[in-house]
């Protein structure tokens, strides 16, 4: 019975048709965000969509339910099977995807890491589209907070997970800036805590900071979930006047806090532009108008001339955008 049904199953699947090649001549792009329901990636998707409307490429997006390390794997395999030309992915893990991405690339699929890179595994993707030069992000945040607290007093960092590669790059640069730049000599980093990008944990950690360090003057939270949770905590505790907060957040998430003065300024880049650039670059490489190699340049409407950097890393913009009361209503993402 066991064998019989197995054989039957085999026969059935074999008699059904084999995979057809992808029919369209248009460049087909799929974007796989970290997880579904994450508003950050909605605007990134919008960038892809707008670019593909102009360039006439086929665009789809498919996202797993959770941002767990392995959740994207079946999607990569399925998209490879669909024969898409380009897989753009915001990886949930810097190393768990290596095998499956290699397989996709062996079949001729172009693989881009978008918004986050496969740190330490660059040879498993073809290029990376990142928002800004990440080496400048940390010092930029320190400068912004410093300007709010007159460059003086205890400060703390509320990050995502202890293993988040981007956040760790920024935090290292923050530490470096605080140590080496005499301008920040009177700013003292008392704690770096991790909220795991979970609203509840971030809230608890932020509350613990307030309770543990009564002289705290400022908090930097370089993650969208953390900065929103910290803002909510400051607002609840009524301590926005004594403790300044800044970080990386989306305008929609931070709007009420900027308007009521809990947060005077925070920073981010445009995820929309990442999607836009990724689509333009994908089409240009696929059509052979440019080569995917460091030094190549591409003109993207709205972004100007973009140059491929070392390690095939491409940045969408030079500097972070700072959002405050005056400009926040111009942004909707």
């Amino acid at each position: 019975m066991l064998k019989k049904s197995l054989m039957l199953g085999l026969a059935l699947s074999l008699t059904l048709s084999t995979a057809a090649a992808f029919a369209a001549d248009k460049v087909s792009i799929v974007y796989i965000p970290k997880n579904t329901g994450n508003p950050y990636f909605d605007s990134l998707v919008k960038g892809f969509q707008d670019a593909c409307a102009k360039l006439a490429c086929d665009f789809t997006t498919a996202a797993p339910a959770t941002a767990e390390a392995t959740s994207q794997i079946p999607f990569i395999t399925a998209q490879t099977q669909r024969g898409v030309n380009v897989i753009a992915i915001s990886p949930n893990s810097p190393d768990a995807l290596n095998q499956v991405l290699d397989r996709a690339r062996q079949k001729g699929t172009l693989v881009f890491a978008v918004n986050g890179d496969l740190v330490g595994n660059f040879d498993h993707r073809d290029a990376a589209i990142l928002p800004v030069d990440f080496t400048k992000t940390g010092p930029g945040q320190v400068e912004l907070l410093g300007s709010m607290i007159n460059y003086e007093g205890d400060i703390a960092i509320l990050s995502a997970t202890t293993d988040a590669p981007d956040q760790n790059t920024w935090i290292a640069a923050m530490n470096d800036a605080l140590k080496t730049n005499p301008k920040y000599a009177k700013m003292k980093l008392v704690a770096t805590v991790y909220g795991d990008d979970d609203p509840q944990k971030s809230t608890t950690e932020a509350e613990a900071l307030l309770s543990k360090y009564p002289n705290l003057k400022g908090i930097i939270s370089p993650t969208t979930v953390g900065v929103a949770a910290a803002a909510q905590v400051l607002q609840s505790a009524g301590k926005a006047a004594t403790i300044k907060l800044t970080g990386l957040g989306t305008p929609n998430q931070m709007r009420p806090f900027v308007k009521d003065g809990t947060v005077s300024a925070f920073q981010l880049w445009s995820p929309y532009n990442e999607g836009l650039l990724a689509a333009y670059y994908a089409v240009a490489v696929k059509n052979g108008t440019i080569k995917n190699e460091p030094g190549a340049t591409l003109d993207v409407p709205g972004l100007g001339k973009v140059t491929v950097g070392p390690d095939h890393i491409i940045n969408t913009q030079a500097e972070l955008t700072t959002f405050d009361k005056n400009n926040i209503d111009k942004f909707n993402f």
């Binding site: 997880n35 579904t36 329901g37 994450n38 508003p39 339910a65 959770t66 979970d198 609203p199 509840q200 809230t203 929103a228 949770a229 909510q232 998430q253 009420p256």
Partner: peptide, 11 residues
Amino acid sequence: SRFGYVNPGIT
């Protein structure tokens, strides 16, 4: 009320 927003994948 407490966290100030609702996310389909987290809440």
